[in-house]
Amino acid sequence: MTAKTAYDDVEVGTELPAQTFPVTRATLVQYAGASGDFNPIHWNEKFAKEVGLPDVIAHGMFTMAEAIRVVTDWVGDPGAVVEYGVRFTKPVVVPNDDKGALIEVVGKVAAKLDDNTVRVDLTATSEGQKVLGMSRAVVRLA
């Protein structure tokens, strides 16, 4: 594992570069195929509304996959991720237009741990709503 970020260069409170990830209906269809999750709430507006959702929503696991990119882009080696957990608090609602929705992710170092690892706390929001809670990753630095 070869992380490009050095343990000695980070402190509690160090902010990771923030990123914004767009998600459209086309993104969700592509993710459904790649992940094998064909639940119609992620592509069928009529079905989503019948089960009480405001509209089609993104796969929670899609949002989880995007959020960790703030960490993997920071360390370079995705294999440096030791732990990663989230709570799905609100759905990312994806309207049927060419813009879709945005998932905004910020992260900062919350603790320095043993073996050159740090805990990063992530916050993911869409339309001002927090879509992931308790979102934490432990990553091994150089």
């Binding site: 696991m61 709570r87 799905f88």
Partner: peptide, 9 residues
Amino acid sequence: VHGDQKFAY
């Protein structure tokens, strides 16, 4: 619905 998800590698 999916509540929480965690991985340890």
